[in-house]
């Protein structure tokens, strides 16, 4: 007797969201089955990988990141170019670390100019992340939306405290918002409802469930993403039928273990390989939980994760 493999009966699908320049027709989402369950339904758009670029040289970072990027890290335009030309990034994520009010506290105007410069210099989709400071982000990202009208950016994190300001600007200037909530399915749903009420079309919303890196809450993120995806696919929860984005590079490479040298932690092995694997394992897990866009930092991770995606997508 032949074994019949049980099949999940899906009642929902993930919405297809266009990103970047519409003439290029780049899409994410559209999943009609659980991640990589191509045998159960169509998965028209493979997960995409963005590489992150800082708008200011990082103060302390892992040696391997320093080696790879210190030649370009005082110039985000060059950094972005390097990611695209040398490492084949599908998209770029620009981290506006310099706007942090507890750090350099750069103004919204300056930040927006920098975003525009980067946007003008690349032809792949651009993600822009603020510093998760509710007040500052609402000034900065609003200005970014205005200055970069017509660039179809993805801007975040848009949180409950600033969704109106950033959401309104995203509607006006046609950008996609990254709706960020602190690892909680109900809050994620609530924020999507609020954005919808504000008038942001579903096609302009991505879910950022908040990423915990390996050893730093990965399992929480995994569970919540899994539940979000289940709610969307088999429980008719329309407000969660949106693609998810995970900002992994930033979380993994800021951990102690990723930065320690071989002298500081000989028992943890080669630091480069260690960091890359921490990033890759986080990425792999979150892909399995349903991530549609990953933001990564190390080119080796990009290579590893890309080969896994290709293999699993068949």
């Amino acid at each position: 007797m032949a074994v019949e493999i049980p099949k999940v009966s899906y009642t929902g699908k993930i919405k297809t969201i266009p990103i970047g320049d519409p003439s290029k027709g780049i899409l994410v989402g559209g999943d009609e089955a659980y991640p990589f369950y191509g045998f159960e339904g169509a998965l028209p758009n493979a997960p995409r990988i963005a590489m992150d670029v800082q708008d200011t040289p990082p103060e302390e970072c892992a040696a391997t990141i320093r080696e790879l990027f210190s030649d370009v890290w005082d110039d985000p335009v060059a950094w972005a170019q390097k990611c695209i030309q040398e490492y084949g990034a599908d998209m770029i994520d620009l981290e506006l670390a310099s706007t942090d009010p507890n750090g350099l506290d750069r103004s919204a105007e300056e930040a927006a100019e920098m975003v525009k410069k980067v946007a003008d210099s690349i032809d792949v989709p651009l993600i822009v992340y603020g510093t998760a400071n509710v007040e500052k982000d609402s000034d900065v990202l609003r200005m970014v939306c205005e200055v970069c009208e017509g660039r179809h950016l993805m801007v975040g994190p848009v949180q409950e405290g600033n969704y109106k300001k950033i959401g309104a600007a995203a509607i006006a200037y046609k950008h996609t918002v990254i709706a960020n909530t602190p690892i909680d399915i109900n809050l994620a749903k609530q924020l999507n409802i609020l954005l919808g009420n504000l008038g942001v079309p579903d096609e302009q919303i991505l879910i950022d469930p908040t990423t915990g890196g390996l050893g730093y809450g990965l399992e929480y993120t995994y569970s919540v993403m899994e539940r979000i995806r289940m709610a969307a696919m088999v429980q008719q929860d329309e407000k969660l039928q949106l693609p998810m984005i995970c900002n992994i590079g930033k979380e993994v490479w800021k951990t102690k273990e990723a930065k320690q040298t071989i002298e500081e932690a000989p028992e943890l092995g080669d630091p480069t390989q260690r960091g890359v694997l921490m990033e890759a394992i986080t990425a792999q897990d979150l892909l399995l939980a349903g991530a549609n866009i990953l933001i990564l930092r190390h080119p080796e991770t990009v290579k590893l994760v890309r080969s896994m995606i290709q293999e699993l997508m068949g």
């Binding site: 609003r142 205005e146 009208e149 300001k165 959401g167 309104a168 006006a172 008038g199």
Partner: peptide
């Protein structure tokens, strides 16, 4: 319109 209209949307 865009600059001022945004204020209508976000409630400012």
């Amino acid at each position: 319109l865009r600059k001022r209209g945004v204020e209508f949307v976000d409630g400012t």
